[in-house]
């Protein structure tokens, strides 16, 4: 315990044993509240039917590991397709959104350039007013984007908040570098590509990751705009599959095969849709607080 006093200032005094113990308990409790549900989900997805039945619907630590549920999920054509759709929307959406955002952030970063003030105001006003669900829906419909993936990507692609975050980073690049580049005769496009993007790579990566998480998690967009169930991405399928217990249409039955435990398949579904988030998570935590704070809105 001696290490814990290292950073403690002298004036603070030693904590009482009671304080130390309750603090430790608090930490354990907080972490357990988050981790325990995941443990149950992962364990149940790996358990066998008999064990789940014996326990009555869930398993905390499986005694026998079975990957039947995952095999089943990747057999079902609809599930496999929904994963591909979700990945596609996430990749294309993030690229499109990020391109618009970075271009606009650089285009608006130079004080005193032509129309800069007016365009910045145009962007910032959107932080104050939202147009509402119905008018946007009707716009998407009138543009013929209903039941296409573009409806999930384009309407929400540009967020003033993201533009302001990246713009802030671009403005913190030393001005001398721009001057040098311009004296050397570099065009704006070249400055953007060879100077701005390499130097603000970290902030662009963070915004990109947040965008990707948003596209991956989006469930209302597809519900609103995709009428064709064949086009459903993972989140929407998971809703009907896990929350509405609609298993028969999703899992293909192979004659003679043991039907995998329904609970396990549902939980396997949850695990699969969580994995991309967990993979991106280390990168998110690395930069997120920095991005959150330095991105604090500057007009």
């Amino acid at each position: 315990m001696s290490r814990s006093t290292e950073t403690r200032p002298a004036w603070m005094g030693k904590p009482t044993p009671f304080a130390s113990v309750s603090r430790a308990l608090g930490i354990v409790l907080m972490c357990a509240l988050v981790i325990f549900p995941f443990l149950v989900v992962v364990s149940t997805s790996l358990a066998t039917q008999t064990e789940i039945d014996r326990n009555g619907g869930y398993v905390i630590i499986p005694t026998e590991i079975s990957f039947e549920a995952y095999r089943q999920i990747f057999n079902g054509t609809q599930v496999t397709r929904s994963i591909i759709i979700s990945v596609g929307i996430t990749v294309v959406g993030t690229l499109f959104s990020l391109t618009c955002t970075v271009l606009a952030a650089y285009g608006l970063s130079r004080k005193g350039s032509l129309f800069q003030k007016g365009l910045l105001t145009f962007v910032l006003i959107t932080l104050l007013f939202g147009p509402g669900m119905i008018p946007v829906y009707l716009m998407v419909k009138n543009m013929g984007m209903l039941n296409t993936y573009w409806a999930l990507i384009i309407p929400g692609a540009v967020s003033a908040f993201n533009i302001i975050i990246i713009r802030g980073f671009i403005q913190s690049i030393p001005q001398e570098m721009f001057e040098a580049a311009r004296i050397d005769g570099a065009s704006e496009w070249r400055v953007l590509w060879q100077l701005v993007i390499p130097l603000s790579r970290a902030s662009i990566a963070v915004v990109g990751l947040f965008l990707a998480v948003g596209y991956w998690n989006n469930y209302f967009g597809p519900l609103l705009y995709l009428t064709d169930t064949d086009k459903w991405p993972l989140q929407l399928l998971m809703r009907s599959f896990v929350l509405q217990n609609n298993i028969s249409s999703t899992a293909q039955q192979i004659p003679g095969m043991v039907r995998p435990p329904q609970q396990a398949v549902q939980m396997a579904f949850v695990v699969i849709s969580t994995i991309p988030i967990l993979l991106a998570y280390p990168f998110l935590t690395k930069h997120m607080s920095k991005g959150m704070l330095t991105g604090a809105v500057k007009g």
Binding site: A104, R110, L114, F115, P131, I154, P155, A160, E188
Partner: peptide, 26 residues
């Protein structure tokens, strides 16, 4: 400055189509 205006254009178009016009659509 026209290259900067071209860069801002995509974002402005998206905001115009899916924020400002729907705002009037109210």
């Amino acid at each position: 400055d026209y290259p900067l205006l071209i860069m801002v254009a995509p974002a402005v178009i998206v905001l115009m189509l899916f924020t400002y016009i729907p705002l009037l659509g109210n």
